[in-house]
Design a binder for these strands. Structure first.
Length: 189
DNA sequence: GTATGGATCCTT
DNA sequence: AGGATCCATACG
């Protein structure tokens, strides 16, 4: 079943980023259901996090959705060509989000391969995750309690989850070193 | 209005 | 190791 409102509203994006490892992300786009187990995430922790788009309270048309109550999508274009999928968390007006960086494909794998044009990896790396699921900026601001994009708890537990610095945020100075990236420690592929 | 650079991916 | 590729943002 879908994760509850409370799961997303908890005011601790780092804890949520870790808890999302092992949950199952679904999309139903163009009448095609695809899903995968979340195996890598990163937390972006509000106005005090230099790596966060909402650092310093920046509120623009792009970042607006991060200020919504948790439980909606935040999709934006990176490097002019990659759509990156984030999950907004925390209370209203607290701009926190979790970047989904990698999935273990679970359902609709043929569809995912087709969307990826048979390239590998199928869904490891934030740009490829969105592509495999059919996510674009058109899917920004979707509620995860509806039937286009949602996350379920299938009771999957992993023995050890490792934390480390986030990828590609060197510009964030000391904040780039924070252990806000979570992934599986050992290969369970 | 212009300028700048990025939460990346893919091929060499 | 480097090119692709273009929007969002910041600045004037």
């Amino acid at each position: 079943m879908k994760l509850s409102h409370d799961f997303y509203l908890y005011d601790n994006v780092v804890a949520i980023a870790k808890e999302l490892i092992g949950k199952v992300l679904f999309s139903c786009i163009d009448n095609q259901i695809t899903a995968g187990v979340i195996i890598e995430t990163e937390a972006y922790n509000g106005t005090d996090d230099r790596a966060c788009h909402a650092f310093g309270g920046r509120r623009t048309p792009r970042t607006e959705v991060m200020y919504h109550p948790g439980g909606v999508s935040y999709v934006y274009l990176c490097y002019g060509m990659h759509h990156l999928l984030n999950i907004v968390t925390g209370p209203k007006d607290v701009p926190q989000a979790v970047l989904i960086r990698a999935l273990k494909p679970l359902q609709g794998i043929d569809i995912m391969r087709k969307r990826r044009k048979d390239k590998v990896p199928l869904s490891a790396g934030p740009g490829t995750v969105s592509q495999a699921l059919g996510i674009t900026t058109h899917h920004n601001g979707l509620s995860l309690h509806e039937n286009m994009l949602w996350i379920e708890d299938h009771g999957i537990l992993f023995e050890s989850i490792s934390a480390g610095p986030r990828i590609g945020v060197d510009y964030a100075g000391a904040d780039a070193l924070l252990p806000y990236r979570f992934s599986l420690s050992n290969d369970n592929s």
